[in-house]
Amino acid sequence: MRVSGDVPLSNDGKEAVFDLAMLTSLPQTSFTTTTVWTEGGTEFTGVLLKDLLDTLGVSAGSLSMIAVNDYAAEVPVSDAVVGGPILAYLVNGKEISVRDKGPLWLVYPYDSNPDYRTEVVYSRSIWQLARIEILP
């Protein structure tokens, strides 16, 4: 995954690039929730968006997240909270491929908060995430 834009911490020129090993080295968060796209309760495991942004030193603005299929969604940094969305790399304990909406999927704990059961949040729940562009 490549993070571009005004990244305070970078490892590839002006960009920060993460592979799965790097991501798994960050603190791991997991929760079980239902989603409108899956059947039954599903366990998601990944890195908390807040932890990622904290690692990158991003605390304000918004993130433009772009998928493999060129789908794009804008997520405000304020969404990145404890108990908020994670960048999931395991679903039900398994790594996910592009066919399973992997390798990264921004998932909100929909069941824990009604505010996450809105179309805006659904539109921000981007899967097959390829890139994050940090917007001021």
Binding site: V36, W37, E39, V68, N69, V98, R99, K101, Q128
Partner: peptide, 21 residues
């Protein structure tokens, strides 16, 4: 292959998403 995977994922969504069920 990537295009195949993306389409595959889309069809899976049709199969598992509550509204499409």
């Amino acid at each position: 292959r990537e295009r195949y995977d993306v389409f595959f994922s889309r069809i899976s969504t049709f199969e598992t998403s509550a509204v499409f069920i």
